[in-house]
Amino acid sequence: MTDHVLEAPGVKGTKSISASTSSARTARAVGSSGPVEIFNATSAIAFLKAGDVTVTAAVTDYPIPAGESRVVDIGAHTNLAAILASGTGTVYFTEFE
């Protein structure tokens, strides 16, 4: 059997953040301004914030429950930051055109 790459129309790519109880961030693809699907693959609530290269997430920011995803429009913000209520894990960001 041959492996195939899955492609979805309008998807620019997926990035991840190694999240913990300290804020961490990742840059979006250059020129991105479309919606972003955020998937919290951790066992804790993730809190997200969009901004520039100095953005820092806090536990008072936008929450996404463990194991869930949300599609949000973050406009032309260039970076996304995440922090977890507890533990460590990965938060994924899929960008759309």
Rank of each mutant, 00 (worst) to 15 (best):
T54Q: 10
G34H: 01
E95R: 00
V91A: 00
E68Q: 13
R28Q: 05
K15R: 15
T42A: 05
I17D: 02
A19E: 00
P9S: 10
A27W: 04
F93T: 06
T26Y: 02
R28M: 11
G10Y: 06
V71P: 08
A24R: 08
A19L: 00
L6I: 07
F93Q: 09
A8L: 10
A24Q: 13
E97S: 10
D73N: 15
L6K: 05
F39S: 07
V72R: 07
E95Y: 15
I64P: 14
G89M: 06
P65S: 15
V36P: 00
T54L: 07
V36D: 01
L48G: 07
I17G: 02
G34R: 07
P63E: 06
S16D: 09
F47R: 09
G67L: 12
G87M: 11
K49T: 04
T21S: 00
E7L: 04
D3Y: 05
A46I: 10
Y92N: 14
P35K: 06
T94A: 07
I38M: 13
I74F: 08
E68N: 12
R25C: 10
V11G: 10
M1A: 11
V53M: 08
K12P: 00
P63C: 08
A85S: 14
K12G: 12
A76N: 12
I45Y: 15
D73I: 03
G75V: 02
G13K: 12
S43A: 13
K49L: 07
T2K: 08
T2C: 01
T90D: 13
A76R: 13
A29Y: 10
A44D: 14
I38H: 01
T60A: 11
G31H: 03
T78C: 05
V11E: 12
V36Q: 00
V55R: 14
F47C: 02
G87T: 10
I45D: 15
E37Q: 13
T42H: 14
A19F: 00
D61C: 08
E7W: 00
N79T: 02
S16V: 10
S86K: 14
H77T: 11
A50K: 08
P35C: 01
T21K: 01
D3M: 11
G10Q: 05
S43V: 07
E68D: 13
A8S: 07
L6M: 06
A81W: 01
G51L: 06
G31Q: 09
R25F: 12
E97Q: 08
A76G: 11
N79G: 01
P35L: 01
S86A: 15
P63A: 04
S23T: 15
V59G: 00
N40Y: 14
G87W: 15
G10I: 02
A66G: 14
V59F: 01
L84K: 05
T90C: 03
D73Q: 13
P63L: 02
T88D: 11
